[in-house]
């Protein structure tokens, strides 16, 4: 549906920015509460950490990283275009640059995160 809508790259950039933003907002609510529990109820925090370290938890952690990285890089693109409106002409190229940065940073981070996970599960040393 998103791809067929007529907005093109600019519209997709906007949609991904909003979806990642709302997702990060939801995580931040959880994260402030869980860190509060470090002081208020350390045992509850530790058992929550046990849930984060399960396979679905690691996938969520990885998706969170992807959402943060996209939102950060595309946010930088928004700031650049808003403060130097002439660059609006190159908004599409800047968006491709966002994806290049996303892959260049994202691939090594993915390798590290799933490597840690494999070690913690005893699948690798």
């Amino acid at each position: 549906m998103l791809v067929r809508y007529r907005g093109g790259e600019g519209m997709l950039a906007w949609a991904f920015h909003r979806i990642s933003g709302v997702a990060i907002w939801l995580f931040v609510i959880l994260h402030v509460i869980d860190i509060f529990l470090v002081g208020a109820a350390p045992d509850v925090y530790d058992s929550l950490l046990g849930i984060y370290a399960t396979p679905p938890g690691i996938v969520m952690e990885w998706l969170l990283g992807a959402a943060v990285l996209y939102h950060a890089l595309n946010g930088l693109r928004i700031v650049i275009i808003d403060f130097w409106p002439r660059l609006t002409r190159y908004h599409r190229q800047l968006w491709y640059l966002v994806w290049i940065g996303f892959v260049v940073v994202g691939v090594p981070v993915t390798v590290v995160i799933f490597g840690q996970f494999a070690r913690s599960m005893g699948w690798a040393t």
């Binding site: 950060a72 995160i113 070690r119």
Partner: peptide, 30 residues
Amino acid sequence: RLSGLGLFVLVLTHYLILHVFHDPAEQDAA
């Protein structure tokens, strides 16, 4: 926009240290 620029530095540093340099599974309350 200003808070976004600040968060670009703070949040990416935060994720890099606590999810890449350190394994989050070890980060219990203690």
